[in-house]
Design a protein around this nucleic acid. Structure first.
Length: 210
DNA sequence: CGCCAGGGCCATA
DNA sequence: TATGGCCATGGC
């Protein structure tokens, strides 16, 4: 059934791939800024760095200045601190991508979860989209989708994540692709106020709302 | 005007 | 472990 969902979405949307960022560090920044925030607001914030978005800049910037830059993304007081925290973590690896990628997935995941402002979704987003680790990303769209399809995956983040990882190959490309498809479908149809009539998953969903 | 958006932290029970 | 309040902006 899970593969049926994937195949249906793939047939409808094609080869979607993410993350909308130019560098791994931009993925990390975007992952923080998009917490409970529309991506259009994140784009506004990113643009205000005016092309000068680096770990060194984030650390050098006074907190107040950083807050002013990311202000359009909302929650700027806490997110400014989160950005400095994740950047400091990145610096402990000298921003060396290979060094990070060579560490065991579960070790690095536990480690990054200790960073202030990094919860389950932010951790998995960074690990998958910045460092290509085969870790499944669950977000609000994913939880909503699984609450509406006939796949018993539990309710919590880790329950849904485990089911997906157990039933799908441990493949970063696949997880990237699948999550992109879920979000794209979520934005268009599987919203809080869903548009089930035109949704490609119409025949699969158990709950046809509205 | 109210609702919502690719969460996480913290206090409480 | 599991809720609930809080954080803030911009689009619709």
């Amino acid at each position: 059934m899970l593969k049926n969902i994937y195949q249906t979405l793939h047939a409808h949307y094609g080869d979607l791939r993410w993350w909308p960022a130019d560098t791994p560090f931009e993925v990390m920044v975007g992952a923080i800024l998009t917490q409970n925030t529309a991506w259009t607001n994140v784009e506004k914030a990113i643009k205000r760095f005016e092309g000068n978005l680096s770990p060194e800049r984030i650390l050098a910037l006074p907190l107040e200045d950083l807050q002013e830059i990311i202000q359009p993304a909302g929650f700027y007081r806490q997110k400014s601190q989160y950005l400095k925290a994740i950047t400091e973590w990145f610096m402990t690896y000298n921003c060396d991508l290979d060094l990070i990628k060579n560490r065991p997935l579960l070790d690095i995941r536990t480690e990054i979860l200790q960073v202030q402002g990094v919860g389950n979704e932010t951790a998995d987003s960074i690990l998958l989209y910045a460092f290509d680790f085969p870790t499944f990303v669950v977000d609000a769209y994913t939880l909503r989708l699984f609450s509406r399809i006939p796949v018993e995956a539990g309710k919590t983040y880790m329950e849904v994540k485990k089911v997906c990882e157990d039933r799908l190959p441990r493949d970063a490309e696949l997880y990237n692709h699948f999550h992109s498809l879920i979000v794209q479908n979520g934005k268009e149809y599987c919203k809080k106020k869903p548009d089930c009539q035109a949704c490609p998953l119409y025949d699969i969903c158990k709950k046809r709302i509205a």
